[in-house]
Computed example of a mutant assay.
Amino acid sequence: MSKISNLLEMIIILQYKELTTASELSEMLKVDKKTIYRYINSLNKANIPVHTRKGRYGGFYIDKSFYMKSADLNEEELKALLMASQTFTEKIGFIYEKDLKSAVHKIKSLHINKNMNLDRIDNTGGFSIDSIGNVENLEHKIYEINFSMSRGRSLNINYFSINKNDLTMRKVDPYDLIFKEGAWHIIGYCHMKDNVENFQLNRIKSLKVSNNIYMRPRTFSLKDYLDNHWGLFVGDKIKIVIRFDKEIASFIQHTKWHANQIIDELQGGSILFSLYVDDIKDVKQWILGFGKNAEVIEPKVLRENIKLEVEELYKKYYNF
């Protein structure tokens, strides 16, 4: 990521988080701490009021009077940007696809307007992720999350799941609030999944600080989590979970298939293989290549697609 992009992300993080350490900024931006201090110096030279609080509970903060406003765009202009980001792709020769999408995400994250309904332009119908995220004011969400982390209180969130196309209630122990790829995320322990998960703020319809007390584990490392789950923060990825039988488990485990793959061993020798993709078409044929030794667990839509294809194959061979 360029220095300008990093500086913009730093301003956004400092604008919404009360206090942020050099270590936290280093982990979020994937640069060393010396670079963070150089960035802070550059912001001060540009008359952006970033200050340092020394001591055990110190860090960087920005004057409350400072506020970086978004461009005054209307709904049609924002929709045009969204459409452009999905039209101009590398497939048609546009080499700046990732930069354009990143810029649009950042504009959306700053353009907070509760009355604006920016439906995702993908013709899929159902819930609108953007309208879900705009139900509750972003500043209020961030305030509540910061409050819950400072007091060690769990959050109850009403969260939109892409895979299930539904809202679910989650109890979450927030470990970190980060800004990545133009969007805000909570990294925390999900009681329902019994695992550390990533929750995008624009998919949270509502949240409430509970009275349940939690402690962030000493063993948790934000840097390690980001290194192992980078795919989660690049756009709206779809989670794919496949169960591979023990007959081919060793082959799957000893091959690097995808940058963000996760493999969990199961009793009996089989494994669960998880990854995040932009489109289920990317992996459908790959899964079918393993025949009866692979079973899609989620998402449901991919499982149904493969089921239909198998049924069509059965008809061809059964009627032969």
Rank of each mutant, 00 (worst) to 15 (best):
Y175L: 09
L82T: 03
Y225A: 03
H140V: 13
S250A: 08
A84V: 08
G291I: 06
V135G: 00
K106W: 00
E298M: 13
K106L: 03
E139C: 03
V50L: 07
D236S: 13
W286L: 14
K223R: 15
S85W: 07
D282S: 14
H254K: 14
K34I: 01
F244P: 01
I238D: 09
F66S: 07
S274A: 09
Y276S: 10
G126L: 11
D282F: 09
Y189W: 14
N146G: 15
N146Q: 15
H105R: 10
F273P: 00
M28A: 09
H51L: 12
R120G: 09
F147H: 14
G182E: 11
S2V: 02
V209H: 11
K69T: 08
G58V: 03
Y318H: 10
K180I: 11
A103K: 07
D236L: 04
S102P: 00
S102Y: 13
H140G: 00
N47M: 12
I204C: 07
N156G: 02
E247A: 10
S210W: 02
F233T: 11
M169F: 04
D72R: 08
D99L: 09
L308W: 02
D236G: 10
G126H: 10
G291M: 10
D63A: 12
N165D: 11
K98G: 03
W286F: 15
N228A: 12
K237E: 11
N165C: 04
P49K: 03
H191V: 05
K171S: 12
K33V: 06
V283F: 03
N158L: 12
I129D: 06
K64D: 15
G268Q: 04
I95T: 13
R216L: 12
A294H: 10
I48A: 05
N195E: 15
H111V: 04
E9I: 00
S26H: 07
V277L: 06
K108F: 10
N260Y: 12
E136S: 10
E27P: 00
D194Y: 02
K316C: 02
V234E: 15
F88L: 15
L73S: 06
V310T: 08
I262Q: 15
Q15W: 06
L275W: 01
L288P: 05
G268C: 01
S26R: 08
I95W: 04
G133A: 00
V104Y: 01
G58I: 03
K246M: 03
Q285I: 13
H229S: 07
Y159P: 06
T89R: 10
G133K: 01
S65I: 00
L29V: 04
W257C: 05
D32H: 10
I13S: 04
E136Q: 14
K98F: 07
N228F: 00
I13E: 09
V277N: 03
T35Q: 15
F179H: 14
Y16T: 03
G125V: 01
G235M: 08
D282P: 01
D119I: 06
N113Y: 08
V135R: 15
T52L: 12
F94E: 11
E139N: 13
I40V: 15
V283S: 04
N137Q: 12
K281C: 05
L8S: 10
R56F: 06
R151L: 15
F199M: 01
R203S: 02
D279A: 06
K292R: 14
N113T: 01
S109R: 04
G93A: 06
T35G: 04
H185K: 02
L110D: 07
E181I: 05
E298F: 05
I145Y: 11
E247K: 13
A84S: 13
L232K: 08
